[in-house]
Design a protein around this nucleic acid. Structure first.
Lengths: 329, 329
DNA sequence: TTGTAGGCGTTATCAT
DNA sequence: ATGATAACGCCTACAA
């Protein structure tokens, strides 16, 4: 393996000089910069990021903390896009990343997780799928030892940012469209996880819309479960005009239930997953670009690692209807 | 951060002694072992794996090399299970892993990839989704610089193992079942990717079965594309008795085409993805436990890293029919 | 059986 | 502007 030492020798300069060039330090003459870069190119030198991580306690290594919810089928698609979006941007930004799942830390304390991250020289983390009940993670964030970017949860401080679409507005948008298209008056709203951050936002949106348009609404918690959405629909949909769901998977459950009940009610979902194209009936939904969200999150983490302060980053959403012809390939 | 030095001081021994205890070296007395372990526990010491990786050029860090095929929807589920299975086992085996996608190395040479891996102190890789055309990866394996485990491709040597189900046998199993259930004689077989390793194995299986049962078979390449399977079905299924597909996604494409044509033909698939439960018609398919396969691959890599020699690892498969009631949750 | 010391490839401080 | 040199935390001959 060619090391910085070889480059230094080849370029006829000191190791520290090479390091300065590589890391864009000031106070290096153009001439030596050129010499060094030439040596780097000729020797095909690639800096060892492990050594760099050991040597400097700053930036460089980050972790993805993903709440892989084995209870939900749609999750694969969403998480995979999260991962791909993050890794892609990380490579661009020259950040090393390790991927971790919540279940690896079951019944571990915040301190234990922190020690693990430290043992990996992790300086920042992106957290996906955190709920209000994940007290351990809240504590991890509060410790302030790591720069954090949280997806879809309102955590912002000196070294914490959050990234996500405007869930309240998105819910309003998709519901309004569906309601206006069908002139619905009586809504069955199947919400997500009790105590979920996005759940509350979306409910707020619905309440605003109901007030504005003078509608009636029954709210039930579907826990993002297709099965529960199905049962709720079977039980309550009959004397409602429309079923609005906080996720595509629940929308699918609701839709299938309606078909079984042999009644028609418009249904809309949230997320824009591919599965929506397979269920035979088109529904309005909110398309979230998960790869883009994750990519933005990585950029945000990079900002934090460079000493900038936390903030709230809102990603755009769009409304779509997915049909089989669109997604087949 | 508490380091090995702190532990040594606390236990009243030398740093090297602590290291020996941690790494289960021989020639350490029970007494000092206990002393050291006590100190480790009291100080909540977690070894810094970055430093360990830098220090010893052996084992420790591995990479997942995933061919994320953006052209296929089913891929999310499969890759996600691959990743989860691998990471889970890696944590158990105390291996650090980084996840990489093929597209990150587009038009990079094998040498460049090797240098990147070296710069990350990577000692072994697991390769998912490699085809016969991935010459660069073949070269990477041939270089012998890294221990490799290849999923579903017949690469075995001193430091390379392969892991996967028996694709030939699995194809025979699912096809035989479908054919016998329907007393089919004339087969339309929609194969996978031209030049794919598994494609050839599965075709071999089909040919064996055709000969044994004295059937006729038309083979077409569907390239694992739902759309192509659809078109092939529209074109050729009419005067065939059964459509056997080399993937679930193609089976879905075929099935939807048959419905449009308004004719009935039994269809079977391969993989056992969740989507099979959503398309309204049950089909026979081969269930591959992707998480298990990946977990086995990680174990195998661990073996290789410990100096053992490469081999062929076969993972069990089962036949299933996925219905909506089974997968909804 | 235990400890000493050199090295892994960088970064960063401090002279020069 | 450049170059020694001491960390970073751990591993591993080798010496004691």
């Amino acid at each position: 393996m060619v090391s910085i030492k070889d480059v230094a020798k080849h370029a006829g300069v000191a190791i520290s000089t090479v390091s300065k060039v590589l890391n864009n330090y000031p106070n290096v003459s153009e001439a030596t910069k050129i010499k060094v870069n030439k040596a780097v190119a000729e020797l095909n030198f690639v800096p060892n990021s492990v050594a760099a991580a050991l040597s400097s306690k700053q930036a460089g290594r980050v972790a993805l903390l993903i709440n892989i919810n084995v209870e939900t089928n749609a999750i694969d698609e969403i998480d995979m896009r999260y991962i791909a979006g993050a890794l892609n941007k990380a490579m661009e930004l020259n950040l090393d990343v390790i991927t971790l799942f919540f279940f690896m830390f079951q019944n571990k304390t915040a301190e234990e997780i922190a020690r693990y991250l430290e043992s990996q020289s992790i300086a920042g983390v992106i957290i996906y799928g955190m709920s209000k009940e994940d007290k351990v993670l809240h504590k991890l964030i509060a410790m302030g030892k790591f720069k954090c970017v949280v997806i879809d949860a309102p955590f912002v401080n000196e070294n914490t940012s959050c990234v996500g679409v405007d869930h309240k507005q998105a819910q309003i948008d998709v519901a309004r469209k569906t309601i206006e298209e069908n002139k619905s008056k009586r809504i069955l709203y199947i919400a997500g996880k009790r105590n979920g951050y996005v759940t509350d936002e979306r409910i707020k949106g619905m309440e605003e819309l109901v007030k504005e348009k003078n509608l009636t609404m029954m709210i039930r918690n579907g826990e993002f479960s297709e099965l529960q959405a199905r049962n709720i629909t079977l039980k309550y949909a009959k004397n409602k005009d429309v079923v609005i769901c906080a996720s595509d998977l629940m929308a699918i459950g609701a839709m299938k239930a309606l078909i079984e009940m042999d009644i028609f009610r418009p249904v809309c979902g949230f997320d824009g997953i591919v599965l929506m194209g397979y269920v035979g009936k088109q529904m309005n939904t909110v398309r979230q670009d998960f790869a883009e969200i994750s990519s933005k999150a990585m950029e945000e983490l990079h900002r934090l690692l460079n000493g900038e302060t936390g903030r709230n980053v809102v990603v755009d959403h769009t409304l779509v209807r997915l049909k089989y012809e669109d997604i087949i390939c």
